[in-house]
Nucleic acid binder design. Structure first.
Lengths: 115, 115
DNA sequence: CGGGATCCGTCTTGATACTG
DNA sequence: CAGTATCAAGACGGATCCCG
C-alpha cells in the first residue's frame, strides 16, 4: 500500500489507503459475507495469495479499519473484524455494487445475499 | 489494467475496470475539475507520467467511459470527455470524497469547488 | 507546441514453497 | 491454521524521442 500522501484530495488520499486491487475485496468479505479468518478470505473466488492477504490484513490493521484478535484456545487461531471506521466504508462499497450491477453484464449478488 | 473477469461479484468486476491507482484520478479530473486535455491531466498534483496517462486514457476509451475527439483546427489537439456511462460513476467518487473528508485528516475540497 | 510512443531501471505485486 | 521466504512478473516513473 502506498502510504505516502499524494495530495489533499479526499479521493486521492482514500485511494492511497484502500485503492488497490485486493484491499476492498477483503473488506467486502468481512462486510457482506461475515468472513473473519485467514482461511476464509483465501476461499473467495478471486483467489488472493497468502502473502498478499497477510500484507493487506496488516495494512488494514495499521489503518484501524480492522482489528485482529486471537480467539478460542487454539494457539494461532486469529479473528479479524471491521472496526467502526472500517464499517464506515460501506457507502463506498455500496456505490460500487450498484454501479457494477447496472453497468457490468453478468454481475450479481450471490444467493446468500448481502448481509 | 486487469481486464480478466475474476468473478460475478459487482465489486470485484468494478475494481477490475477502474480499481487501479490512476484511473479514478483521471475521472475525477474530468468530472469535478472539467479537465479535457492531455496536458491538463499532467498538471494534477499527483503527477501522473505521460505513458501511464496515455495508457489509462486508452483503457477508459475502450471501456466507453470517455470519448476522444479532435477539436479546433490544430492537427493533434485532442479532447477527452466523459460519456454518460462515465458520468454514472459519480456516486462512487462522491462516496469516496465523503469518506476521505471525514476520515482522513487534511483532506479538503479545493477552493475552486466541485463542479 | 501538443500528444503521445518507447526504452529502461526500479519498485511493487503475486504465485509458490515452506515453516512454527 | 496462519502466516513468512523466495523469486519471477508486472506496474510504474522518468527521460527521451517522435510526429504532425
Amino acid at each position: 500500500m502506498a502510504q505516502l500522501k499524494r495530495s489533499y484530495c479526499p479521493i486521492a488520499s482514500t485511494l492511497d489507503l484502500i485503492g488497490d486491487r485486493w484491499t476492498l475485496l477483503v473488506i467486502r468479505d468481512m462486510m457482506f459475507f461475515g468472513k473473519q479468518r485467514f482461511e476464509e478470505f483465501l476461499e473467495s473466488p478471486e483467489g488472493i495469495s497468502t502473502n498478499i492477504l497477510a500484507n493487506r490484513l496488516k495494512s488494514l490493521e495499521d489503518l484501524n479499519l480492522i482489528v485482529k484478535q486471537p480467539y478460542g484456545n487454539h494457539p494461532r487461531r486469529m479473528n479479524y473484524q471491521l472496526t467502526e471506521r472500517g464499517q464506515s466504508l460501506r457507502p463506498v462499497l455500496v456505490a460500487m455494487i450498484e454501479w457494477g450491477l447496472e453497468h457490468i453484464p453478468d454481475t450479481m449478488i450471490p444467493k446468500g445475499g448481502s448481509k
